[in-house]
Write a protein that binds this DNA or RNA. Sequence first.
DNA 1: CTGAGAATGATTTTT
DNA 2: TCATTCTCAG
Length: 720
Amino acid sequence: MNLLEGLNPEQLAAVTLPRQHALILAGAGSGKTRVLTTRIAWLIATNQMTPQQVLAVTFTNKAAKEMMARLTAMLPINVRGMWIGTFHGLCNRLLRTHYRDAGLPQLFQILDSSDQLSAIKRLLKSLNVDDEKYPPRELQHFINGQKEQGLRPSAVEAWDSYTKKRVELYEAYDAQCNKEGVVDFAELLLRCYELLSRNEALRRHYQERFRYVLVDEFQDTNVLQYRWLKLLTGPEAAMFAVGDDDQSIYAFRGADVGNMRDFEREYKVATVIRLAQNYRSHGNILDAANAIIRNNENRLGKNLWTEAGAGEPIRVFEAYSDLDEARWVVDEIRALARDGHARSEIALLYRSNAQSRVLEHALFSAGLPYRVYGGLRFFERQEIKHALAYLRLIANPDDDTSFARVVNFPTRGIGARSIEQLQDAAKAAGSSLFAAAAQTSGKAAAFVALIAKMKESAHLPLPELVDQVVELSGLREHYRADKEGQDRLANLDELVNAAASFVAEEGVVGAEGELSADLIAFLAHAALEAGEHQAGEGDDALQLMTTHSAKGLEFNIVFLTGLEEGLFPHENSLVERDGLEEERRLMYVAVTRARRRLYLSHAQTRMLHGQTRYNLPSRFIEEIPAGLVKWLTPRMAKQGGAHGGVSSRLTLDEPRATYSSRASGSGTAYRIGQGVRHAKFGEGIIVNLEGGGEDARAQINFGNAGMKWLALSVAKLETV
DNA sequence: CTGAGAATGATTTTT
DNA sequence: TCATTCTCAG
């Protein structure tokens, strides 16, 4: 069977496994997606199951699409009918089908995170809750956290008055959503989970249907997602969970790696297959990654290997400053480009977004095209959200979030005052803002009439409807008048195009009524799939992104910058539970992105939040065996004076930092940036100085041992 | 309603 | 430092 051609023994074992629960520990670059898709194709091709019997779940739309595309290439069938999608996409599908059983209006709308935040702000205002005491963002996080644990307000344990109040607000928030007919992301999951757990007939139906449940990136599942999977995996079904505990980097948003062990135990998983052969990177890169991750205690264990050669050593550069680091990156990239390397095969990675600006500035000055991932996405743009809000009001006039968003945009003389009156009226009548507005006469009523007018176009093909709405709303007019509105105008036109291609690709055929079924599907699509990240200029552009965003991607050449204590590992991680191990996994993910060449760099000084910081090299650099590393700068170049043997090019560029702070203790002069050694804490760098004479104190970053304030007259410090 | 200036606060992110 | 959010005067 040619489907199986070229698979290694472990991949083959996984793909052809009999129907039983299995955990596939798929290391970075081990052909995980291939295994997942080939298994589905093989099961179908060998008639072990029909396309209807598979449920395949991913986290991102990108992964789901990739799976569909590969399946299409492997099988002569239409994959569109198969249940392959994201957790949220599949829940949406189930809830649309069974909206009555789920207690939802047929045309329920989906709130994205920013919609949810506005809804919470509106709630706090209407309840007269002090948003200083209950910050909306924090409340949002609290509510989502509870939902992701599967907890409704009544199930949340609250002992202190603060939590009790938050639970009360959670309850009020849910009530508001129900009234408005809207559902947030976490609610999609929870509502679907509850639907299936309460409705036995429905659960049985799906359990009997899905014989194979396959899960991608299992290490990223949260408690609720795992429980949802368990509900859908009936007694006859087999769960095939693919994941890598070493690449679990999303604990901060609720992912629970513990699900892997729980799955193994609860399902008495007999087959754990380790995919450790790596098809991506050269040996030295894998050895470095293996060595780093070995320092984590909590892991299921696995060691990547390759048939490719050792390849090049890992290059490490110590920069004097962040600016210097950026200049070095530019120089190195220029040299690489001269050698014929494609820019799009070079990635610049950093731990936090703030680090990109210095790099961007240097690249821009050097005229090197680049693309930054992580900006605003298409459906998140202001003008697009405005247009969508009008469309949502057509579908569901009770959607107060959308109402509040556009009732006065473009401005039509309905100010904060009038909106407050509407809110009071709506509250008194227990109705939506839209209904309250309909009761008035004047500007608010005119807005209601406007929506009614738009609704007259609701039977038109979707792209025409969108075009009408953009026109009638006055959005087009508004941005035409705005001298900086040209891009937004173009985006609105693009929205019409997006609607057209959506209908062409996923249009609901035949369904006609007062409202176009396409509209509802399109609105869900817009909420669930925010679209492409802002495209950068140039086809052959360097790729800039955070280490998190890089997960799942690969590049011939990777620059991993800002490898400093406090930055990476991030200082906050040191006080979080298992924070350091998560940072290390992130480092592991970053390192394994590189195919052939990996550069690591750190800077002695760096501007952060308007202050110059003095950071020690990241411990992760030291965790790489010295034999794999080639230092481009003398190892641990010392501070001050001629500063070690750093190349003369660097000494020309003195940092902008001023060393105004000086102090002395025990007759020795100290200055910021000075390296010191302490008997107990080891080597550190002076970060701050205070006072003088007998009272002089120094704040010292000891790296592993943390940040300390020491009295210079007392502490026995040795200068390094 | 708008715009200017102040205040704030700043890992990581998909749906 | 700098981007975003808030506040207040016009």
